[in-house]
Simulated scan of single mutants.
Amino acid sequence: MTLSKKMINAQVMETNVDVFRCPICLSEMVMMDGSRLVCADNHSFDLSKNGYVNLAPQAHVTKYDQALFEARKTVMNSGFFDGVLESIVKTMEAQEHAVILDAGCGGGTHLSTILSRLTGDVTGVGIDLAKEGITAAAKEYPGAIWSVADLANCPFQTEKFDTILNILSPANYAEFTRLLKPGGLFVKAVPESGYLKELRDIFYEDKGQKEDADPVARVADHFDEVNTERITYTFPLAAELLAPLIQMTPLTWGASADKVEKALQMGIPTITIDFTIITGVKREESGLCLVE
């Protein structure tokens, strides 16, 4: 019998049900009938038809819609981020048996790609507050755990993850250090000044962008053995990728229709990828909560 995507995802959840904790009462959870997670206090969370679970009890409205995630998938499937993902995979290659959390996984493409390139026995868990992203991930990439969840209240037990990925997403370091096993690996990917500079030149012109606080220092506040690697390259941009690239990046949100049309008409032949990969190892005693 061919298993449905919901059944495939449910099996992975059931096998790894010990990682979950109820987001309402924080108690342990079990899988019932292959279709719902239930805690000791009988809070129940049904799996969707595609096999993800919504563990964010309060409704959240995000600015990320289905069209945006489709645009992101188109760009990501082109190999746009391959250099960045290869660097991340190299930091994780020593892990033969690992449970990996992608915090802020969006539509799941990054996590799915990374899992496919690791040779060990790995289990992937992707969380995001955007229901549209998790819906797309569960549908497109069965075989992992996908959950709508809040970084401020991650629905997982303490010290259950070998690696936490945080790619182009906000961070909650208190939760990350709680969730990681002793000696667990944290990997954060942050854009640098050259990232998409061709679009920045169009949409920002001579206006400077506000720089975020130093992410390396933030990681070093909470993790030991902090290392960085700068990944910079140019990617040939096929004509059909320009529109979804403009749609997916916050750089262009709020731009006028005229400015978007100008960018589309320019026919940008190459685009710059510029990231720093920051890694750290969980220390014995974590610091205070610091959210970015």
Rank of each mutant, 00 (worst) to 15 (best):
F80G: 02
F80E: 10
F80I: 04
D82N: 13
V84M: 13
L85E: 04
L85A: 14
L85I: 04
L85N: 02
E86R: 11
E86Y: 11
S87D: 14
I88Q: 04
V89F: 08
V89Q: 04
K90D: 15
T91V: 12
T91N: 10
M92S: 11
A94W: 03
A94R: 15
E96M: 13
E96T: 14
H97M: 07
H97G: 09
H97S: 13
H97Q: 11
A98R: 06
A98L: 12
I100S: 10
I100L: 09
I100G: 01
D102A: 00
A103Q: 01
A103R: 05
G104A: 09
C105K: 02
G106I: 05
G106L: 07
G106W: 02
G106A: 01
G106T: 02
G107H: 08
G107Y: 11
G108L: 02
H110G: 02
H110T: 08
S112F: 00
S112V: 00
S112P: 03
T113H: 14
T113P: 01
T113G: 00
T113N: 08
G120P: 07
G120W: 10
G120E: 07
D121H: 15
D121F: 15
V122C: 13
V122D: 08
V122H: 13
T123S: 02
T123Q: 08
G124S: 02
G124F: 02
G124C: 09
V125S: 02
G126D: 04
G126L: 01
G126F: 01
G126E: 02
I127P: 05
D128S: 07
L129E: 01
A130I: 06
A130S: 14
K131A: 03
K131C: 03
K131I: 05
G133C: 12
G133Y: 10
I134Y: 00
T135M: 15
A138R: 06
E140D: 15
E140G: 15
Y141Q: 15
P142G: 09
A144C: 14
I145K: 07
I145F: 07
I145M: 13
W146V: 02
V148I: 09
V148N: 04
A149L: 08
D150W: 08
D150H: 04
L151P: 06
A152I: 09
A152F: 12
A152S: 10
N153L: 05
C154Y: 06
F156N: 03
Q157L: 00
K160I: 01
K160C: 10
F161M: 06
T163F: 07
T163M: 14
L165D: 06
L165N: 06
N166H: 12
N166L: 06
I167K: 05
I167C: 08
L168G: 03
L168H: 11
S169K: 04
A171T: 10
A171E: 12
A171S: 14
N172D: 07
N172C: 03
Y173S: 00
E175V: 00
E175G: 01
F176K: 00
R178N: 12
L179G: 10
L179R: 05
L179M: 12
P182G: 05
P182M: 10
P182Q: 11
G184V: 13
G184Q: 01
L185C: 09
L185S: 12
K188L: 14
K188P: 04
K188M: 14
V190D: 09
P191T: 12
P191N: 11
